[in-house]
Design a protein around this nucleic acid. Structure first.
Lengths: 353, 353
DNA sequence: GTGAAAGCGCTAACAA
DNA sequence: TTGTTAGCGCTTTCAC
């Protein structure tokens, strides 16, 4: 007996998507297996063109949509990649990580499951749990600024990659920006203009960025045969106020080239310098870091800087997770921070008459 | 045999999720049904405390994780809410929409499925298709700036809400910022300081923001009994350059209060004004729009502005989708843009001796 | 109190 | 060439 409904047992809710493979099969007068084959375009199964066509027509007419849940149940795995972020909002940057991850995931047939945790432990556990229950292919654990981050225990139940952060014990795969190369690149932009005395306004915040960029700065000097002068390195709050307040010290140093910890500091520095009637880059050349475009691309003059590769971080994270980029189980991959040359490092060359 | 490590390098490989309800049942010596009951804490089923406890112990010991796919298959629906965005990256704002949507969804037990389409049609269709196949509860269709947007056909196969955009035919539910109120609020901030001649640097871009903010500006003037003078409304490119270039015109107008279309324009204006030795707010008071914090909170002086409620947009979209906030099938809900008072509208009061 | 069993929509052997 | 059938992991009704 297989009568489904002639009783008063109407489906409670007119289910939006009632069309199943079963319906297709019945409507086309074939078995579900056959329907499944043509729905999935299985070419290795020999079916009459006639049948194939007929079934396909029914599929189109009824507007059949395969049920991903069912497929996943059968296949035992899903096409989900989880992305847990500590702060989607705090910074424009986080958005770029999501963007890169999403693009790359999509490219390989995966979908992003996003969770924001505001750095809150319970939210984090819950997010990971939910992802695990959804049989995610793996999880990207990301932070909005580059730092060490403890790996939540639950993460280890699946594949995961740290993005923009790394396990303090260095026992997990991670993708982070190459701060050292970035610091060096920034400094080189100034050195390339002939400057020999380059000040560095570093951040007061203890973080890989602080250490790495300083190391890069030193490396650049060394490569140029310039002695490192600790007096040229200042610490400042990493924002506009910090940059503005550093003006005095910079002027006292008598340098005419400054590498700022980030674009916001550079913005503050612009302000302070201008208030004293100094011109950029003629009196003082400046490079920033981050390439936070709302700022860097629109300062006057536009700011030369070095790009924090957030998009790439997300994309590379996915590639590492899916095994497209090979990586040791404890790999710490550094992504380059490319230079973005604008007008704060060298004045536009005057047109020759 | 249970030797975990006596080999040299055996990184604990993530246990493929073998633990099913079936395993629990077997290990606890009960049926899957019973296991299911205790796993879900069904209190309306009569089970011995002893049994309940025993099964629970097994569940904990084996680290059982329910399979969301299977649950969803049975229940016929998922706990997913799709969010398709035309540009996660282009602006920091989009991130806030995601953030708001994610928080609100989470609050109701839903998870966000995110797709970025870069405004590209095929990508959009594909994204929606994927969401539909995953049996999403509904879809949030969002844009990074407030505008009219055609509703992709496929969207209509499920519940959906437009976020930060609306169907040109006004036949769908939508949540957008209240540009008119925003424009009025911004203008009022200036009027409240006693200014009677307020210039408005509007954008050249044809969009709801242009029309709405102007309307709000006019409404504010009217409410204050001030005649609208079209000469006080300028058009400018909506970024720093536009603001900077508008300085001449502003000065020619002889006003001492300016409402800028957005914070970036205000930033450019600051620059131009300062170059001419003018002080803000003493010589000229300024309000922006958007509250793009990297800029507004760190200009000198910090910029008074009006907030584009992106977070609320995302959250309200979810609430409308889930029916938590009632809404007509063609409701166009406007979310208020609250004022953010900082120091560009009035100088800090000097301390009285 | 607890278990057996019927599916949810789909895939993939294996038959026919 | 196509249909039958056994699950995938879980919920839930209905017997025992």
């Amino acid at each position: 007996m297989h009568t489904m409904t002639h009783e008063s047992k109407e489906p409670p809710k007119p289910r939006r998507h009632a069309v199943t493979l079963h319906d297709i099969a019945k409507a086309a007068g074939v078995s579900v297996a056959t329907a499944s084959f043509v729905a999935n375009g299985k070419r290795d199964v020999r079916l009459t063109d006639e049948t194939r066509e007929r079934v396909q027509r029914v599929i189109d007419e009824l507007g059949y949509r395969p049920n991903a849940m069912a497929k996943n149940l059968v296949s035992g795995g899903s096409k989900f990649i989880g992305l847990v972020a500590d702060a989607i909002a705090t910074t424009p940057f986080a958005g770029q990580i999501i963007h890169g991850a999403q693009d790359e995931a999509w490219k390989h047939g995966y979908v992003l499951l996003v969770a924001n945790t505001e750095g809150n432990e319970p939210a984090e556990r819950e997010a990971i749990t939910m992802m695990l229950e959804h049989q995610v292919r793996g999880i990207l654990y990301s932070t909005w600024f580059h730092r060490a981050a403890d790996v939540p225990e639950a993460l280890r139940e699946t594949d995961f990659v740290m993005v923009n952060c790394f396990s303090p014990s260095l026992d997990s795969r991670a993708v982070v920006p190459d701060e050292v190369q970035g610091g060096r690149t920034a400094t080189d932009m100034l050195l390339a203009e002939g400057h020999r005395r380059v000040a560095f306004i570093n951040t007061t915040a203890i973080a890989p960025a602080r250490v790495g960029r300083l190391e890069g700065y030193q490396a650049a000097l060394a490569a140029a045969g310039i002695d490192f002068d600790p007096a040229l390195v200042l610490d400042a709050q990493p924002d506009q106020e910090g940059g503005f307040d550093a003006v005095e010290s910079i002027l006292r140093l008598g340098v005419n080239a400054v590498f700022c910890h980030n674009d916001r500091v550079a913005m503050g520095l612009y302000d302070g310098l201008r208030a004293r009637g100094l011109a950029i880059p003629d009196d003082i050349a400046i490079v920033g870091f981050d390439n936070q475009e709302v700022i860097s691309a629109h300062l006057r003059p536009p700011l030369s800087t070095v790009q924090l590769p957030h998009y790439e971080l997300g994309a590379a994270g996915v590639r590492m997770l899916l095994g497209i980029d090979e990586a040791a189980p404890d790999e710490l991959r550094r992504i380059a921070c490319p230079p973005v040359a604008r007008q704060s490092t060298s004045a536009p060359r005057p047109v020759q008459p």
